[in-house]
């Protein structure tokens, strides 16, 4: 997409967001303590931010109408949502919601690494198998034993 069109579009989205945030700010707690003192209000700072965002969105939209912006051959906002990205995202959520607490960190990470490496095209099976087992084991040991972070355990007694 041409840069000026992309900037105009994103400017409009940000402007709508700032309006939504403004409404949201006003629906929240307004005043604590002295009602005459704006600084005591918990929403004072977000209001300043929302106004700034709105103003800068208008500037972005305004800039996109300039002749100079239209003359630029820069392209922005060109997404290529190919199979690789879709698979990474799907596996990410399967890893998170299906496996993380049912299989535990170790087993869940083993299949995730194995499947994703092979899917992305790394074909050295021995290295894939070794890394898929060793990396989660090292991470498990490090986080649970050294950093005292309780990672989710699965059906295996020791992991």
């Amino acid at each position: 997409m041409e840069a000026y069109k992309a900037n105009r579009m994103i400017g409009v989205i940000l402007l709508l967001l700032s309006i939504g945030a403004w409404i949201s700010v006003y629906s929240q707690v307004q005043v604590m303590g002295d009602p005459d003192m704006l600084a005591r209000c918990p929403t004072f700072f977000p209001r300043v931010g929302v106004v700034l965002l709105g103003v800068m969105s208008l500037v972005l939209i305004g800039d996109s109408f300039s002749a100079q912006a239209k003359a630029s051959d820069e392209k922005l906002g060109e997404f290529r949502l190919n199979l690789e990205i879709v698979v990474i995202v799907v596996l990410f959520f399967v890893y998170l919601y299906v496996g993380f607490f049912r299989l535990g960190f170790f087993l869940n990470s083993v299949w995730f690494l194995f499947v994703l490496m092979l899917f992305l095209g790394y074909r050295n099976w021995l290295v894939v198998a070794l890394v898929s087992v060793l990396l989660p084991a090292v991470l498990w040991y490090f986080f649970t034993e050294v950093a005292n972070v309780p990672l989710p355990r699965g059906p295996l007694l020791f992991f």
Binding site: I88, F92, S109, F112, L113, L116, M117, L120, G121, Y122, V127, V131, L135, P136, L139
Partner: peptide, 11 residues
């Protein structure tokens, strides 16, 4: 290759 690195980085 990145195919090897990316899964490790994600985990």
């Amino acid at each position: 290759p990145k195919a090897f690195l990316f899964p490790i980085i994600i985990v």
